[in-house]
């Protein structure tokens, strides 16, 4: 238990510190790398409470895919950091307001001041007892039975967003010579190669 407490405080501290460094650090590439560190330690916190599925998905989705794209974009862009810093004080109140609102929402949802206990109780009923089964199956059972339709709708929304993004960026340029791989593969032997008997010293004309 002591070991677990120490691990929790170490991971929590690193999450907070690296999250702060994401905002503070001068080099945007460092920011993204600190963001990755924050994701990692958040996953470790998930492991500590026994939510191994969520932890792994967090690493696969955020560290393995999203952060790679961030890093990609940040490395390619020539970002002028000093110009980004100019508006820092101007935007600080707005950012702080959003932060406070989100914090209050989480606190209310968790049932501070006796407000959210009812909703938490409802949610708790939907989840099967996690003691006997692995949490992968617990999540699967809730998502594919209780919230099946909502889950499918969420998938559809993502599909539409994906198709939308493709349609927006797709443009046909005229005059481009494309490679048609199937045509190349179906070309018969007779059109592709000729066997020539080369006389010594004669060469091929």
């Amino acid at each position: 238990m002591l070991l677990q407490a120490i691990a929790f405080y170490v991971f929590a501290f690193v999450v907070m510190a690296s999250a702060a460094m994401v905002v503070v650090s001068r080099n945007p590439v460092y920011s993204v790398l600190f963001l990755i560190l924050a994701f990692f330690n958040a996953a470790a916190l998930m492991l500590l409470i026994g939510a191994e599925f969520i932890a792994m998905i967090l690493i696969i989705v955020y560290v393995g895919a999203v952060a790679v794209l961030f890093l990609f974009v940040v490395m390619m862009l020539d970002i002028n950091v000093t110009r980004l810093r100019e508006g820092f004080l101007k935007y600080l109140p707005v950012g702080a307001l959003i932060g406070i609102v989100l914090f209050c929402e989480i606190m209310l949802g968790l049932g501070v001041f006796g407000s959210g206990t009812a909703t938490l109780g409802e949610l708790g009923k939907a989840a099967p007892q996690v003691v006997a089964i692995t949490n992968t199956r617990a999540i699967g059972q809730v998502l594919y039975t209780q919230y099946f339709y909502l889950f499918q709708v969420a998938g559809l929304v993502l599909l539409v967003a994906m198709i939308g993004a493709i349609v927006l960026t797709l443009r046909r340029r005229p005059g481009v010579r494309r490679q048609r791989i199937s045509e190349q593969l179906y070309r018969p032997k007779e059109q592709a190669i000729t066997v020539v008997k080369v006389p010594t010293g004669g060469g091929v004309s």
């Binding site: 790398l33 990755i36 191994e52 696969i60 393995g64 490395m75």
Partner: peptide, 24 residues
């Protein structure tokens, strides 16, 4: 562990960082 396949997948998706950081 219960999520061995996911762990392997997660770790193998991290390999890209060594390369991209080295390049930058």
């Amino acid at each position: 562990i219960n999520v061995g396949i996911l762990y392997l997948f997660a770790i193998s998706s991290l390999g890209v960082y060594g390369i991209i950081v080295a390049g930058w």
